[in-house]
Nucleic acid binder design. Structure first.
Length: 965
RNA sequence: GCGGGGGUAGCCAAGCCCGGUUAAAGGCGCCAGACUCAAGAUCUGGUCUCGUAGGAGUUCGGGGGUUCAAAUCCCCUCCCCCGCACCA
């Protein structure tokens, strides 16, 4: 049994000592690729392994193609999840602690240190056996480790400072306000990771329509301001507490719960006093915009904790409103209690203002009837509301009677009405969670806070978008289908909040209250890699904007900058040289899910900050990874860590497996038993290779058909694998480089005689094979290369070239023919249920059939064929008259077959000379071994043939007749 | 809802752009045989249905169409996945 782990260590050390992957600019053509650096909040698992093995395979392949390849790596520390995780440790959250100790081997005495986010991140970046650095080393990645960094290194912060100065100068950083989830107790914004409850809950914008009664304002919250034209009344919940509050100088009546929310959302809230809605019930109030007067009525369904607790009623388009109104009309008793006239309520009816295909006059009425909803507490109302809302928004049109907005699409009218009302002061905005509850890990109930003075990157800027489009247009995208999505995102992207108050990162250069957020500090770090190893040798405070201007934009004079900053001139020149050598980036790789943000930001920032000649050349987007069909989650511990996988299978089997089942852009599923199987494949390959290595060195023997076939197929696999790798199709490449080649070799070994020619072929195959697999299984291939007595590292050996001269179409044709005959025999044996045949006879079509066959073939290729005509022609050509009936039947069959064939196949048949008898005769030994029977080959017209069933007459060219017994 | 991507045999997946060489590569799983004291590994064969002759029949989410011919082209429909912003 091979100890792959030993091979891994041996060759990793050899590479390290030879500094094999430390890339320096030189005269060769360069190839520079990067993959999104990991966000180090937990262990490196096989999902990450898939993501990072792809670029390594491509790097190794390109290196063998003669490129000077740079493949660097760093660690993303910026942002909140690491801080959040450290907080969870600080709180000693039992579940999290359990995973850390039991699953990830963190010892109890380390917890104190883990409370420091920096320590926590560093642990997963480089320290732990489960860390990214170690995982990547164990997998044998060809990374230039001298260039690694973290995004909180002071040098990197200087770089981000430079970048944001540039963006500020370009006027692309703007100020605005922005709603966030907020914990009132922690006095902090909260991310999903900080939540006990409410993960993934969105924030929706309500419009508060200001209904007026005297100097009271009742701000009714709605998601559908366009329905203001259909309002029949206002709802207040008679069972809950309302208050009268001074809000922005107006006297607002809202639920008790709403007050704090309004305050968080930046409204001036003055005196708040208890308020009895009794004095309002049954009164008339003025609707904004329409200035209609409607009744204020009681409705228990109104939720005081949703927005303001004041709701306008639009029965035609809101199922809740319709049902509540029906209930009041049926049971008017509560009305009397409030002194309201039931007759007035009876008169109220649905006012339809939206027309929707597939619904009647009032969609809400339709749906309520269809779903048989009787009460406003019926949970089915949620579903009914969703259905009405969805349909009206998507397909609805404002009815003609509606002033100004009549005829408009609902989706358009909604925004228009809102904007108009906000502008006129008749409405305001309020944010609310799309679902509840939302609870912080500290236990407090969260709310929506409107953050003022938030900084945005203005991706809405049209000139910037144009540059991004131009950059996108010149990039090669893998897979090409992603282009539509990219283009769409560029158009749709608008202001992106680029700063945060919490988390690790670089302080915003213009406002020290803020930090640059994680997706905004990782847009151009590919440029940083080109010089990071030299930057490390410079004091960070010497890294002024002038330095980066010089390195990346060629501004200024190295000598002068050296004088001002105190950085050695030679270092400045070296850095400028590195950047100019490596840039532009050839490929950026990242996940599919990052297309709408990171990958598009990357495009925007490069397009803006760098001259066109330094724009990136390509993007490859990858699919996600799951574990036995289940989502992997580091924080819950259901992962296969790289460390575990490599210990079990060795680096190469893991790499091969990760590359073999799907292409990079497809979703990957890790299944242990398939990984097991891959290890066995690798072992088989290794054993096979060693057998070949052990064969005595052959001379230059002459080659038989199987030999020529094997070498020809080898060339085909080289070609296929090469083309596949050029398109990042690692699975397809492996399909050829590993599986197909293995299969062909098996066939060849059955056919071969084990002579000198065989040894010669096997050695040649192995020489190519090891190189084909080297990008995928570098350790095993290095070892074999060494065992083969080759000089140097296979990692730097030229990639195999397709030797056109060795492609032997005739040999492939003959061998395919033979395999087909072998299959036919098996098929017959199965059909007649003979398991152990004693005798097999093959009858090869005689000369006249071949000549007729060729004539028919030519006629079919030339165009339309009349069998009658062809028959005459063939008779003439063959000088045969006696067999007209047979000939006619034969030609008919043959022509029919040809007609169903592809042009290419016909051309091939016409172009190849095949001596059927010779091929079969030479393969007699092989066939009789295959079937364990005596095998005889006859010409069909051989008078002395053994043919008890008179089968010979059935022979056709390419289909010899067969007799078995 | 919007934008993007998919639905192929027990599972994963190729093929689809450029219709015929495709009952449809390869891997996994499963079955049988060889080897072995046995198991595992390995090797060989099989794995839609039927078949005493290399064949026939029915398949590529569902329905319809174009064509001599459709997994592949067109139309309709159902279902699944990803993203939709402060989450990296």
């Amino acid at each position: 049994m091979v100890n792959f782990q030993e091979l891994d260590a041996k060759w990793q050390q050899a590479w390290r000592e030879a500094k094999l992957f430390e890339a320096e600019p030189d005269g060769r053509q360069k190839f520079y690729l990067t993959v999104a650096y990991p966000y180090v909040s937990g262990p490196m698992h096989v999902g990450h392994g898939r993501t990072y093995t792809v670029p390594d395979v491509i790097s190794r392949y390109k290196r063998m193609r003669g490129y000077n390849v740079l493949f660097p790596m760093a660690y993303h520390f910026t942002g909140t999840p690491i801080v959040g995780a450290a907080k969870r440790v600080a709180r000693r959250e039992p579940q999290f602690i359990k995973v850390l100790t039991e699953r990830y081997g963190v010892s109890g005495d380390e917890f104190k240190k883990f409370e420091d986010p920096h320590y926590f991140a560093n642990h997963w970046a480089k320290v732990s056996d489960l860390s990214y650095r170690k995982g990547m080393e164990w997998l044998g990645y060809s990374i230039d480790w001298r260039r690694e960094f973290t995004t909180v290194d002071p040098h990197y912060s200087r770089f981000i400072t430079w970048q944001y100065h540039k963006l500020m100068e370009a006027g692309l950083i703007v100020k605005g306000e922005h709603p966030v989830k907020w914990c009132p107790r922690c006095q902090n914004p909260v991310t999903d990771h900080d939540l006990l409850d409410g993960e993934g809950v969105g924030i929706v914008e309500f419009t508060l329509l200001k209904y007026r009664l005297g100097d009271y304002v009742l701000p009714a919250a709605t998601l559908r301001p366009e329905t203001v034209f259909g309002v029949t009344n206002l709802w207040l919940n008679p069972n809950v507490e309302y208050v009268l509050a001074e809000v922005d100088g107006e006297r607002w009546v809202v639920s008790r719960e709403a007050v704090e929310k309004l305050r968080e959302q930046g409204r001036e809230v003055g005196e708040v006093q208890k308020f009895s809605t009794r004095e309002l019930m049954g009164k008339e109030i003025e609707v904004p915009l329409t200035h209609k007067r409607v009744l204020i009525l009681p409705a228990p369904f109104v939720d005081p904790d949703n927005a303001t607790g004041v709701v306008g009623s639009v029965p035609a388009h809101a199922p809740y409103d319709y049902v509540a109104l029906l209930e009041l009309q049926k049971k008017p008793e509560p009305l009397k209690q409030w002194g309201t006239d039931p007759a007035a309520v009876q008169k109220l009816g649905a006012i339809s203002l939206i027309e929707v295909r597939g619904f009647g006059e009032s969609p809400a009425v339709d749906v309520v009837k269809r779903m048989k909803i009787k009460s406003q507490t019926d949970p089915k109302l949620e579903e009914a509301t969703a259905e009405v809302y969805r349909n009206e928004f998507a397909k609805g049109v404002m009815r003609d009677w509606v002033p100004k907005y009549g005829g408009m699409q609902v989706s358009e009218a909604k925004a228009q009405v809102r904007d108009d009302l906000v502008f006129s002061g008749e409405a305001a905005a309020m944010y609310e969670f799309s679902a509840k509850p939302v609870t912080c890990r500290c236990g407090a109930k969260c709310c929506v806070r409107l953050v003022k003075d938030q900084w945005f990157l203005n991706y809405a800027d049209e000139a910037w978008k144009e540059k991004a489009r131009a950059c996108l247009a010149q990039m090669h995208l893998v897979p090409p289908e992603t282009r539509a999505q990219f283009e769409h995102v560029v158009g749709w992207l608008h202001e992106w909040p680029c700063t945060r108050h919490i988390g690790m990162g670089t302080v915003a250069p213009w406002d020290s209250n803020w930090m640059i957020e994680s997706l905004s500090d990782s847009t151009i770090y590919m440029a940083y890699y080109t010089v990071s190893h030299i930057l490390k040798t410079v004091e960070p405070d010497k890294l002024t904007d002038e330095v980066f201007d010089h390195i990346f934009l060629g501004k200024g004079d190295a000598a002068a900058i050296a004088r001002v900053t105190g950085i050695e001139e030679q270092k400045l020149r070296a850095m400028r040289g590195e950047f100019e050598y490596w840039y532009p980036l050839d490929y950026r790789m990242s996940a599919n899910e990052l297309i709408p943000n990171h990958l598009t930001f990357f495009t925007f920032h490069h397009a803006l900050l760098f001259p066109q000649k330094h724009w990136p050349r390509g993007i490859a987007s990858f699919g996600i990874a799951v574990l036995e069909g289940q989502k992997m989650s580091s924080s819950r511990g259901n992962i296969v860590a790289i460390n575990e996988a490599v210990r079990k299978y060795g680096a190469d089997a893991v790499r091969l497996y990760l590359m073999s089942t799907v292409e990079p852009w497809q979703d990957f599923d890790w299944r242990a038993h398939e990984a097991d199987a891959m290890l066995r494949h690798l072992e088989r390959f290794y054993a096979q290779a060693q057998e070949i290595v052990a064969l005595p060195a052959p001379g230059r023997p002459s080659l038989g058909l199987p030999e020529r076939w094997m070498l020809s197929k080898l060339q085909r696999h080289v070609r296929e694998a090469t083309e596949a790798l050029e398109g990042f199709e690692v699975r397809k490449a492996l399909q050829h480089a590993l599986f197909s080649l293995m299969q062909d070799l098996r066939w060849y070994l059955k056919r071969a005689r084990g002579d000198e020619a065989c040894a010669y072929v096997l050695k040649r195959v192995l020489d190519t094979w090891v190189r084909l697999l080297a990008p995928f299984a570098p350790h095993t291939c290095e070892e074999l290369w060494h065992q083969m007595g080759k000089e140097g590292f296979v990692s730097l050996t030229p990639w195999p070239k397709v030797e056109e001269g060795i492609i032997d179409r005739a040999a492939e044709f003959a061998e395919d023919y033979l395999a087909g005959i072998s299959d036919d025999i098996s098929n017959i044996l199965r059909a007649v249920k003979i398991e152990r045949p004693t005798r097999i006879c093959l009858y090869v079509a005689q000369d006249w059939k071949w000549r007729a066959y060729r004539m028919a073939l030519e006629r079919v290729r030339a165009g339309r064929v009349e069998v009658k005509e062809l028959l005459r022609e063939v008779e003439r050509g063959l000088g045969l008259r006696l067999y007209t009936a047979d000939l006619a039947k034969f030609l008919h069959r043959v022509v029919q077959e040809f007609r169903a064939m592809h042009e290419e196949r016909l051309a091939e048949l016409a172009g190849v000379e095949l001596d059927e008898f010779q091929v079969l005769f030479d393969a007699t030994g092989f066939l009789s071994k295959q079937f364990g029977a005596g095998v005889k080959i006859f010409m069909a017209d051989d008078a002395t043939r053994y043919d008890p069933q008179d089968r010979a007459q059935l022979s056709k060219p390419m289909r010899p007749a067969i007799h078995v017994e």
